[in-house]
Amino acid sequence: MTALPPLPDMILEPLVRHALAEDLGTYGDLTTRTVIPAGTRYTAQIRAREAGIVSGMQLAAIAFRLIDPALSFRLRVPDGTGFAAGEVLAEIEGEAASILSAERIALNFAGRLSGIATDTAAYVAETRGTKARITCTRKTTPGLRLVEKQAVLHGGGFNHRFSLSDAILIKDNHIAAAGGIRPVLQAVKARASHMIRVEIEVDRLDQLAEVLDEGAADVVLLDNMDTETLRAAVAMNAGRLVLEASGNMRLNRIGDVAATGVDFISVGALTHSARTLDLGLDF
């Protein structure tokens, strides 16, 4: 996988600053200020305690820099790169008190985001030999969508919408409120900008037939269909629209779904159920 360019630090810094302020409270790191003599210097390592794909090291570096710009942060394994258990991901050198005050926030970001990247890579591996791409959803941690979606990219996946303003995505409740598939697509034809892509959700083949007949959509979200129905939907579509399979996409099912010929498989679990990878900081 080609390395992704990092996001500008100025975009990520407010996230890290907020997390540090929450952790430091009203009086700072009371333990460190009490027991660590001023001027004590150490070199610390962020080390992987299990294998995975790294993400979040840019945020970890920002955390150490915000606590103490004099700290030296040396990245050993860039975001989006695989690592083995026991591997050193980064080294931090400087005031011990500063390192300790930033430690938890740096590890929280790196562990959470590396977990997302690692889980995404496992899903992507199940699609090998097919055209299907794994994509995330908007089921993200409030306030952390940008970095969680970046972690999906680090794991080899793709991003769905970042916000409600990115595209038109017509779900079942929109269809119900608008009076059906034809009325909702006719409204799109009448009101939507030609610059906006349109996706519509269906859960039955007769609904897909309506969408294909009416036009106006670019992408069809095939929701909660079993594998045989997905295969029938691909045949019915005959390459006209982009097809995205969604709903109940467990890891052990991804290979079968990818083999149906769908273009994308959206997996909410990449972000809403990702584990935190076990990373530690050692002096």
Rank of each mutant, 00 (worst) to 15 (best):
G129V: 13
P8D: 01
R112T: 14
G86W: 05
A178V: 02
E199I: 01
I53D: 01
D203R: 02
N248Q: 11
A3C: 01
D263I: 12
D218C: 11
L113S: 06
Q150N: 12
K139G: 09
V198T: 07
A178P: 00
G155E: 03
G115N: 11
A85D: 09
F83W: 06
D206Y: 07
V54H: 03
N252V: 02
G56Q: 00
A233W: 06
A96K: 02
M236F: 03
T276D: 15
P14G: 09
S246Q: 03
S114A: 08
E201R: 00
M57V: 02
R47S: 10
A269I: 10
G215W: 09
Q207W: 06
F162D: 11
M249D: 00
T276M: 15
A258M: 06
D29S: 12
G52W: 10
G28L: 08
A63S: 12
L107H: 10
V16R: 12
F283T: 05
M249C: 14
A21G: 10
S266G: 09
N173R: 09
A177S: 14
V257I: 15
I116S: 11
Y27E: 07
T120P: 10
L4D: 09
L144Q: 09
D172S: 11
G239N: 11
P78S: 11
D278T: 04
V211M: 08
R128Y: 06
Q45T: 04
D213A: 15
L59Y: 02
Q207V: 04
R138Y: 08
V184L: 00
G280Q: 07
L164R: 13
F283K: 03
R47T: 15
V188T: 00
E214H: 08
P142A: 13
A217W: 11
I200A: 02
Q45E: 12
R275G: 13
A106P: 08
T118Q: 07
D166R: 01
P14F: 13
A122Q: 15
M249Y: 01
L146E: 06
I92Y: 02
A3Y: 07
R138E: 04
G157E: 02
C136R: 05
T229G: 00
P69R: 07
T137K: 14
I11C: 00
Y27W: 10
A167M: 14
N224V: 00
K149S: 13
L12V: 07
L107D: 08
A132R: 01
T260D: 14
T227P: 00
F64I: 03
T127W: 11
S165C: 08
L185D: 03
F264L: 15
L230G: 05
H160C: 13
R161D: 01
G180M: 02
L71A: 05
L230Y: 03
P78C: 01
V219I: 15
A19Y: 09
G239L: 11
I116T: 14
L144S: 08
L7S: 05
A38Q: 11
K139C: 14
T2E: 15
I105W: 08
G80K: 04
N248C: 05
D256H: 11
L113G: 05
T118Y: 06
Y42I: 11
G86A: 07
L75M: 10
R128Q: 15
H174M: 12
V262C: 07
D119H: 04
R104W: 02
H154Q: 06
A121L: 13
A245L: 08
G215C: 08
A38V: 12
N248A: 10
T34C: 09
I62R: 06
G80T: 04
E95I: 05
V77T: 15
D282Y: 14
